[in-house]
Write a protein that binds this DNA or RNA. Structure first.
Ligand SMILES: [Mn+2]
Ligand SMILES: [Mn+2]
Ligand SMILES: [Zn+2]
Ligand SMILES: [Zn+2]
Lengths: 138, 138
DNA sequence: CAATAATTGCACTTCCATTGCATAAGAGAG
DNA sequence: CTCTCTTATGCAATGGAAGTGCAATTATTG
């Protein structure tokens, strides 16, 4: 019984071949991926299965969804010990206007945002757009 | 020649009946609207015309687009003297999880966000979700 | 008025997200 | 191990929003 199996068990997710493959795919990526990316990586598998696998991961707080403003939902693995299941992740996301990739800046927490009297802030989505390190570094 | 005509002229937008109606509709709203909202308000007009009118307004920096994470694009009139034409609006947006409405917090500017070495920040989208004043105030 | 340019309406397309249902695979009881 | 029941997977279809091509209408200009 290895690490990943234990991890799945702790998250109450049954281990299947498909899920393992998709998990490993996500784990190896350092940028957020679209469903399309996953499709391209697993052409033999059905779109719906991939979709529902990601949804399962999301429900169980294995991945979190990212809305970077491109109109296409992206996903990334949650940090170990994140609390995505109880609240939105507090880190910010960076979208590169050049390479069109989106990454989690997990150690850049979202600052406290002041809202007017009467408003209650429950969570915050913060996306910074610009040029990423790979693209800016020539 | 009244105010609105002058305003349209200053923005290099030709005045048409449709545009005037839509402008007035937006001006009277205090929340961001979807294309669907506009459609419902002008059932006799064609969807495409409404769509393109909004797009024209957007191009000419009369309205700005808001991505509040619901997946549906919303629009709101720009403040007088905003600089939406040269950069994204710097104010933050609030989305109410209760009434599902989104409003511009025009006098709440987005704070400076620090990004890691090598990253260049060009603009920022900041959406706060929670309960709005109308919904929280009982 | 005629000629030209911009706006509007209709039909159609594309793309992503989501669901219903049938089948296959897996877990558990006996 | 076998039967039963649950869950996962695959296929087909749907829904909704966004965007485009083109023809018809309306506005502008000379
Ligand atoms: Mn993230
Ligand atoms: Mn705004
Ligand atoms: Zn980049
Ligand atoms: Zn509200």
């Amino acid at each position: 019984m290895n690490n990943i199996e234990q991890f799945f068990e702790s998250k109450h997710i049954r281990l299947t071949a498909m899920r393992l493959l998709i998990y490993k795919f996500l784990a190896q990526k350092d940028v957020a991926v679209t469903l399309r990316d996953v499709e391209n990586a697993f052409e033999k598998a059905d779109r719906t299965t991939l979709y529902r696998t990601i949804k399962t991961f999301e429900d169980k707080a294995v991945v979190h969804q990212i809305d970077d403003g491109t109109g296409i939902t992206k996903y990334a693995l949650c940090e170990k010990g994140c609390n995505c299941d109880i609240e939105t992740d507090l880190h910010l996301h960076f979208h590169c206007n050049n390479c069109n990739e989106t990454i989690c800046l997990t150690d850049h927490k979202i600052p406290q945002i002041k809202v007017p009297e009467g408003f209650v802030s429950e969570n915050v989505n913060l996306v910074v757009k610009g040029v990423c390190d790979k693209c800016s570094g020539q």
